[in-house]
Simulated assay, not measured.
Amino acid sequence: MIKRMQGLAVALVVLSMVFWFGGCAKKVPTAPLPPPAAPKAPPATTLPPTSRPYQVLGKWYYPLPDARGFRETGIASWYGKPFHGRKTANGEIYDMYAESAAHKTLPLGTVVRVRNLLNGKEMDIRVNDRGPFVEGRIIDLSYACAQKLEVAGPGTAPVEVVAIGTTDAAAQSGKVDPNYFYTGNFTIQVGAFANRANADRLRQRLDREGYPYSHVVQGLVESGTVYRVRVSRSTSLEQAQVYQKHFRDNGFGDAFVVAE
Rank of each mutant, 00 (worst) to 15 (best):
G58C: 06
R130Y: 00
I75L: 14
E238M: 12
N90S: 01
T225A: 12
R126V: 07
T167C: 03
H215R: 15
H103E: 04
G153E: 15
S142G: 01
A102F: 02
K121D: 06
V257R: 00
R4I: 11
V257D: 02
F181I: 13
Y143W: 09
G120T: 02
Q55L: 12
S51C: 08
A255K: 03
T46W: 15
F252I: 04
I2W: 11
P35E: 11
S234M: 06
S236P: 05
M123T: 11
S100C: 03
V114R: 02
P39N: 09
S51P: 03
A38D: 14
T46V: 15
P178F: 02
P212V: 09
G58S: 07
D177H: 00
Y97K: 13
G74F: 10
G85F: 08
V134H: 12
G219A: 15
L117Q: 10
G174D: 05
G131W: 00
A37V: 14
E222M: 14
Y182P: 00
P63R: 00
L12F: 04
H84N: 14
L141E: 06
S51F: 07
A255L: 03
E222H: 13
E222K: 15
R205C: 08
N119H: 02
R52M: 09
L149H: 01
I125G: 02
G109A: 02
K245G: 08
P29I: 06
T187D: 08
G120S: 03
N90P: 02
